[in-house]
Simulated scan of single mutants.
Amino acid sequence: MHFMDEYSKEEKKLLLDLARKSIEYFMEKRELMHVNESSIPDKLKKKKVTFVTLEKNGMLRGCIGSLQAHEPLYLNVVKNAVAAAFYDVRFMPVMKEEMDEIEIEISVLTEPERVDYKNVEELLRKIKPKKDGLIIKLGSRSATFLPQVWEQLPSKEEFLSHLCMKAGLRRDEWKNGKIEVYKYNVISFKEKWQDYFFNKLK
């Protein structure tokens, strides 16, 4: 698995602040927020892949990400935060009055690594619950689950079955040996309720 960068508390807070501010800015201006790159640490300018997850009262409220590193980390966070808030087709766009109840989580992904396997048993053996995020591909269909999804689907078989259904495939399609499987790890971090409201009151 590719090396995962570590991020300081300050860098994580900066990314979370950018995510929240970009949502609020888009809500008001209907355009992406411009970020002064000179204020961004070099580590956050590296090309990275991210997912931004929004939760409201502990329930999913939006989640959008990318799987190919094509732009700086901080910019990918800004774009995915806006997309999660306004363009996740599973949900209505986030409203201004909801923002105090929204909690933001950012996941930074390693580069996906192909899982080579000869049979179902080998595939299951190479997957590590609670650590690996998975991508599956078959023809034009594909889907991914972040490692956080293991909390809801702790069984390897159920994890793969639900991932197949997410991709629009039969739930047991992963057993036929034809799907491509990739795995990745994440560093994930989320807002702390106390920090958010302290900053809001300043």
Rank of each mutant, 00 (worst) to 15 (best):
Q194N: 13
F198V: 13
E37V: 07
F51H: 06
A83P: 07
Y184S: 05
L32S: 06
F198W: 11
G139M: 08
K156W: 02
G168A: 13
S142R: 14
F159E: 05
F86E: 13
E121M: 05
M4A: 13
W193N: 13
T50R: 02
K126A: 00
Y196N: 09
M95W: 14
F91D: 06
K79E: 13
D195H: 12
H70R: 11
D17R: 11
I179G: 00
V181Q: 00
K46M: 05
I104W: 01
K126N: 00
A167Q: 04
S66N: 11
Q68L: 08
G62M: 03
K9E: 15
A69G: 03
D132I: 01
P129L: 10
P72Y: 09
T50V: 12
R61A: 02
K12V: 07
V35L: 12
I102M: 09
G177S: 01
K48W: 03
D172M: 08
S142I: 02
E103T: 15
V35G: 06
W150D: 06
E173D: 11
V120Y: 08
E37H: 06
I179F: 01
A81K: 10
K178L: 10
T110D: 15
M99P: 07
S161V: 09
Y74G: 04
T144N: 11
A69I: 00
L153W: 11
P93Y: 14
K166P: 08
E98D: 15
N76Y: 09
K128F: 10
A85G: 05
V186T: 13
V89P: 14
N36Q: 04
K45L: 06
N80G: 02
M165I: 07
D195T: 14
N76R: 03
L109Q: 09
K130N: 15
K156Q: 09
Y196S: 13
M27E: 12
